[in-house]
Design a binder for these strands. Structure first.
Length: 454
DNA sequence: GCGATCAGAT
DNA sequence: CACATCTGATCGC
């Protein structure tokens, strides 16, 4: 995780570190176990170091994606045949033994550091000094291979969400998961067993500042399909899936139009080697086989690449075909309804359509986070991400937001007096917003943070 | 010198 | 658009 992650990315009280593989800040806090939630680049810092030599626990799909990881520059060199073999950034994490012609193996230097676990399968690990923890992986609804971690041991149970999207169906699945059911808050009719209360939830707070609800993924993709179906059947589409996590768009398009989708070599290689059977079969390498393209973003195939910039070619590909770009965005549920209405009218009028938006959020906004915490009522909530410039102000705000949803709320007062601000503050959201406004407005966040820390 | 880390822009 | 990614500057052995 980037700078600003609480506790240097450790899951207290365990010496387990998540999504950060750089050297520990001091020798006494060397992680006894490394966890990787998913392979987005801000979650794998330090793994590129050739000197990294620890076991890393992750999903099977994350292992596959990491070992096949190629940065764009390398993909580009390969595609233009300046380089026969592509350089896989993390190939040093798995080095096979050398096999001699007589079948004997030479092991020195060989290794296989990524330890994949199946989902929903509790597995025991021994930390140093004989401490045993049980680790269980759950799908996180964020991108292929992305998981949440449940860590259970003598120091209590902790749930680390990694990056996740806790939309309603996901929350429903949580409440039916046999490995998480012991930690559900239930109703207030009977007291909880203290051993069945999560010590902490390490929560994906990337979108905690989004206080309005956002469309479900199903809602976003079905609306997009409605719009796409209104356009002429001669239209070509470029789906700008610029990072892992927009696969729901590809799946919805593939299903609705009963077609494969043109993929670049790299994406195709990833999708055909991970566990989701729909993803495995949804792509084609044949660019002429489909009107729907998710090929290399900066090196699109001729069917969806811009033609020469003559006015006559406006909106056309090099093949002379009309192209519509599908761009994932974040958008409130309310704004999405308006956008759908307006865009349907525009298409009905015959307005030229250059692009369509699809509001596919890969992180939960505040209402979903509150609902998620409420069904578990842990003892603490720790944000997985903070904004470094706010010096902990956002953490303070989040404490106040989630306090009422804890097992035993501290009943933190939501006052503005100790902030020494003239702006009335009614709740923690406003306090966080205010902190940012003041930061941007040139005030000193450090002194503010000190004042607020009291 | 190079790799690792960071800041800033998209 | 986006909160992940790329780029170029800076740090450090």
């Amino acid at each position: 995780m980037p700078p600003g992650t609480p506790y240097n990315s450790f899951i207290r009280p365990y010496s387990i570190r998540v999504d950060e593989f750089t050297n520990s800040p001091d020798i006494d806090t060397v992680p006894t176990l490394h966890l990787l939630s998913h392979t987005h680049s801000d979650h794998i810092t330090g793994l590129q170091a050739k000197s990294f030599g620890y076991i890393v626990i992750c999903s099977h799909d994350a292992k596959e994606m990491l070992l096949r990881h190629e940065v764009y520059a390398e993909r580009s060199l390969h595609e233009h045949e300046y380089r026969a073999e592509t350089t896989r950034t993390y190939s040093h994490l798995k080095v096979d033994p050398l096999v001699y012609p007589d079948g004997s193996m030479y092991y020195t230097g060989s290794r296989d550091l990524l330890r994949p676990l199946a989902l929903n399968t509790p597995t025991q690990f021994e930390l140093t000094n004989n401490e045993i923890v049980t680790i269980t992986l759950f799908d996180a609804n964020h991108c292929p291979g992305a998981v949440m971690f449940l860590i259970e041991g003598d120091r209590g149970a902790v749930l680390h969400t990694g990056d996740f999207r806790a939309e309603p169906w996901f929350l429903e699945s949580i409440t039916h998961n046999p490995f998480l059911q012991p930690y559900l808050a239930g109703d207030d009719s009977q007291p909880r067993d203290p051993n069945s209360v999560l010590e902490a939830i390490y929560l994906d707070t990337a979108s905690v500042m989004t206080s309005s609800s956002v469309p479900t993924k199903a809602n976003a993709t079905s609306g997009l399909i409605d719009l796409m179906k209104m356009l002429p059947t001669t239209t070509y589409f470029f789906i700008n899936s610029w990072t892992w996590g927009y696969e729901d768009v590809l799946k919805a398009v593939s299903r609705a139009f009963r077609t494969q989708i043109h993929l670049d070599r790299y994406k195709h290689g990833i999708y055909t080697n991970i566990s989701d059977p729909v993803l495995r079969s949804l792509g084609t390498r044949d660019e002429a086989a489909s009107r729907f393209h998710a090929c290399e973003r900066f090196d699109r195939c001729d069917y969806v690449a811009d033609a020469d910039p003559h006015p006559a070619n406006r909106g056309l590909s090099r093949m002379g075909r009309p192209v519509v770009y599908v761009n994932p965005v974040t958008m409130s549920a309310a704004r999405w309804q308006t956008y759908l209405q307006e865009t349907k009218l525009a298409i009905g009028r015959g307005d030229p359509i250059k692009s369509l938006l699809v509001p596919l959020s890969r992180h939960s906004p505040l209402p979903e986070l509150q609902a998620f915490v409420a069904v578990l009522r842990p003892r603490r909530v720790v944000p997985n991400t903070l904004i470094p410039g706010l010096h902990g102000l956002d953490w303070k705000g989040m404490d106040r937001i989630f306090d009422p949803l804890l097992d035993q709320p501290l009943l933190l007062e939501q006052t503005s007096a100790d902030l020494d601000l003239d702006i009335p503050v009614d709740d923690a959201i406003t306090e966080m917003d205010t902190a940012i406004i003041n930061l941007v407005g040139g005030h000193d966040a450090t002194s503010l943070a000190e004042k607020w820390a009291e």
